[in-house]
Amino acid sequence: MKITVKLFATFRQGRFKIEDRDVPVGTRVLDVLHSLDIDPADVGTLFVKGRAVEVDRVLDEGEAIAIFPLVGGG
């Protein structure tokens, strides 16, 4: 199935801003993070369809996931 991955801030470095991916049915957010070599502990914001989700959320066909790192300076 097709999903869209959107990366933000430092997660873009050495990766991409947006990419369509073909993944197996049943793919979880955590599987996407692993495939990108992103440690879940470094993730600040995870949105699927504009809702905050946990890493065990199973993705559906056509969904877009937005992944932000922890950006907490001021």
Binding site: F8, A9, T10, T45, F68, P69, V71, G72, G73, G74
Partner: peptide, 10 residues
């Protein structure tokens, strides 16, 4: 509310 780091912010 906003946050910044490196070249980025929200």
């Amino acid at each position: 509310s906003s946050g910044v780091l490196e070249f980025y912010g929200w």
